[in-house]
């Protein structure tokens, strides 16, 4: 099975690097092109949030298997200030006018699974999964 990759996120160029890594792995695993695009876009948003709110962090991109299913899991981790109001951050305004403007409801819509852990002491970890169709 393909290898996992960790991309350190420090600058805006790393956002591009992270999403390209995601697309590479998706292509390698035989994802349909649309799903590769959805995955790359979600990674881009998560990487962007790291730079904007935490300055530094990392994104792990790894293949996952569950029974017959093959997929990709992405873990975006930072030690930033954390999200004070998670329900508000997940509130869907379907645009920047609603929620906190983190784009997290949008990322959730792009993916099959979405998990968010955040607090002021440890920072924020977003875990997303996309299964191959």
């Amino acid at each position: 099975m393909a290898n996992e990759a960790v991309v350190t996120i420090n600058t805006d160029a790393d956002v591009v690097a992270a999403r390209q890594k995601g697309r590479e792995l998706a292509t390698e695993l035989g994802f349909v092109s649309t799903d590769s695009t959805l995955l790359a876009t979600a990674i881009s948003e998560l990487a962007r949030n790291i730079i904007r709110y935490a300055k530094h962090g990392e994104i792990l991109i790894a293949p996952v298997q569950s029974g017959d299913r093959v997929g990709i899991t992405v873990v975006a981790r930072d030690k930033g200030p954390g999200i004070a109001n998670i329900p508000l951050a997940m509130q869907d305004g379907f645009s920047t006018s609603g929620g906190l403007g983190l784009g997290l409801p949008g990322v959730k819509r792009l993916m099959d699974e979405f998990h968010l852990v955040s607090d002021a002491n440890t920072g924020t970890t977003v875990t997303i999964k996309k299964w191959k169709r």
Partner: peptide, 15 residues
Amino acid sequence: IQPEVAFAMVQLGLT
């Protein structure tokens, strides 16, 4: 704007 990109944009609420 490519069709897949348009799809992802709409999902994100970017119109």
